[in-house]
């Protein structure tokens, strides 16, 4: 199945060589959420690029994931402005609450955590993004609330100040 998707993207975007590789990987990840070993093998066969090169290129960019996302993918902004608003307290608390650090997925597949660069809410920090919803001005109490909801399998209501 994976092979078909790779083939589909290659023919759709007319990718012939290495310069299209990153585009291919990005589309692949957008559709499947993760880049897996068999995808790399498929791409290697289709484009004639060595497997290790593909992995070397993909792993260079933090954007690409090799571990699947959880049902709730928490992105926490660690950009400069969020840092100044003490986002590190939030990341530490998040790790403490979930037992997961950056890039990890919980065993039940419910929650995954990613420390990202700027999410765009530079004056609203600390900013958290769960799947497609933003949560701004997050503090420890809010975070606890959010995580307990997530861990019970519920998507929390969006909240801003």
């Amino acid at each position: 199945m994976g092979s078909a998707l790779v083939q589909e993207i290659i023919s759709e975007k007319k990718i012939t060589d290495k310069s299209g590789l990153l585009m291919l990987l990005q589309i692949l990840q957008e559709r499947t959420g993760v880049i897996q070993y068999h995808d790399i093998v498929d791409i290697s066969k289709q484009l004639g690029i060595a497997e290790s090169k593909i992995f070397g290129i993909a792993s260079f960019y933090n954007y690409f994931r090799f571990i699947p996302k959880g049902k709730f993918h928490i992105e926490i902004c660690t950009g400069t402005s969020c840092y100044l608003c003490d986002c590190e307290k939030m990341t530490a608390e998040l790790t403490r609450l979930t037992g997961l650090s950056n890039g990890e997925l919980s065993r039940d597949g419910l929650v995954s955590i990613e420390h990202t660069g700027c999410l765009g809410g530079c004056s609203q920090g600390p900013v958290l993004k769960i799947n497609d919803s933003f949560f701004t001005h997050v503090d420890v109490a809010k975070l606890r609330n959010l995580v307990s909801k997530l861990q019970s399998g519920e998507m929390p209501e969006e909240m801003s100040v």
Partner: peptide, 12 residues
Amino acid sequence: TGTCSIVAGITK
């Protein structure tokens, strides 16, 4: 409407 205001909730 910019990314900043979207984060702040302008869509709602």
